[in-house]
Amino acid sequence: MKKIIVEILSILITALVAALIFNQVSGNKTPMFQNYKSTESVDLKHNIETIDIEVFRYYLERGGTIVLDARSGEEYISGHIPGASSFSNNEFYTIFKERGELLQLGNTVIVYCSGPSCEDSHSLALKLAAKGIEDIFVFGGGIEEWIGAGYEITGKNI
């Protein structure tokens, strides 16, 4: 038993030392004990524009715009902006495999989630941008602002 514990500790210490050394010498230095902070939302502020409800309405009326609901499928079914498609941020990779090509046809893509405080729309926008979709905006007010402004919501429309 003692020998196994020594073996396990040796492996763990070797891994710890290797990880620390690699983390120090690699260009991509990661903090070890710090609250997790998504790098996406930081990058997003520089790369993807957040639009208000007036601009959002302009794009809807102009046409050629794909609106994506970044909330969960259940939230989407319970009520969403008319014409929006469900594209849950949590299921991004599965959904993108199925429907990603439709987003790469040159249309403007606008994503939204629950409201100004939710992160799913920002996260989804960056993931889409990383997949090569260029013309993309975040409707920052989300469903909260949409309902608050008196616009209607609708049921399932996947």
Partner: peptide, 12 residues
């Protein structure tokens, strides 16, 4: 707070 440490250590 416990995301980065296993992200660094586990693969090693």
């Amino acid at each position: 707070i416990l995301i980065y440490a296993p992200a660094l250590l586990l693969p090693w």
